[in-house]
Design a protein around this nucleic acid. Sequence first.
DNA 1: CACTATCAATTAGATACCTAACCATTAGGT
DNA 2: ACCTAATGGTTAGGTATCTAATTGATAGTG
Lengths: 169, 169
Amino acid sequence: MSESAANFGRKIQYASERSLGHASPQSDTSVGYVVRDVHRAFSRSLQAKIAAHGVSMGQWFFLRALWDEDGLTQRELSQRVGMMEPTTVTALNSMERRGLVERVRNPHDRRKVNIYLTPKGRGLRDVLLPCAAEVSDLATRGIAPADLALTIDVLHRMIINLGDNPDTI
Amino acid sequence: MSESAANFGRKIQYASERSLGHASPQSDTSVGYVVRDVHRAFSRSLQAKIAAHGVSMGQWFFLRALWDEDGLTQRELSQRVGMMEPTTVTALNSMERRGLVERVRNPHDRRKVNIYLTPKGRGLRDVLLPCAAEVSDLATRGIAPADLALTIDVLHRMIINLGDNPDTI
DNA sequence: CACTATCAATTAGATACCTAACCATTAGGT
DNA sequence: ACCTAATGGTTAGGTATCTAATTGATAGTG
């Protein structure tokens, strides 16, 4: 049972055996490790592109959410982006400092703070989304759409399996 | 061309549509986002298990490398683990503090520092590796081996595509 | 209408990463 | 033997996360 489990403690010789540039051929090929490396590869790649426009990865996700729907409260934003609230606070602090968003205390419920994009923040959309597209495009180059779809599905199933989903527990 | 690129800026309705527990149904399903979420799911899951034994994620990777080969220099360790050297320094500091490893200045080349597991550090192997196996097992439960293999291969190809590999550039 | 529970945001403090700049040591050429 | 290169490790400083505790505002109940 569960050959997959053994994976974590063992090495499989793989076609494209080299996890990160500086990782030795010793590097592990179990799912967890590969996922970590892909994640970092994505981060670096996108980071490199958007940094040119003065936006950091930490800000990226919140901008994305706000381009989608402006004026969310901080809690709503946290939920959309999938990050804890203190993380949101610090990200918004830096975004506010850079003039990308504005905090507006909600007049009807003074506990809430609504976040609005400034023109500058909104304007970044047309510059930054293509960056993300480039990264995604680069990453998936040469991968058959069916394989990609299956990969995404498998990854989704892993998320659910790992029980990060409250309804699942 | 490149439907994949569009992904990054769009939402696809997916069977298992829910990225993180607290993420709304709005959450993006493009590869980059899913990878990020799986990565965090893995981290949390493993972290929860190994924390019980006083080991943090930052230490885990280095322990793994040392269980595999003891007495590596810090640079070698960094390369095996795929982390920058300052990261290694701080991880080793905490591991040394907790009595998991010992730094020994290399007598033949006094620039180098060899890292040796203490009995305590070595002993954790038999406790911690099963934790990782459990996580891996849980994550891949119900996923056909062929699908898993394909997923890992696709992820590897993405790493190479994203050019984190110097030899590829 | 006062009390308490809940909600929204924040602060405090920890971990895990990174880049850039800096020492200390060794190696190699003259 | 010197001087410069390169090598190995560290420090300094920044970003991105998290959990736990705190503060302020509202809502619900007796």
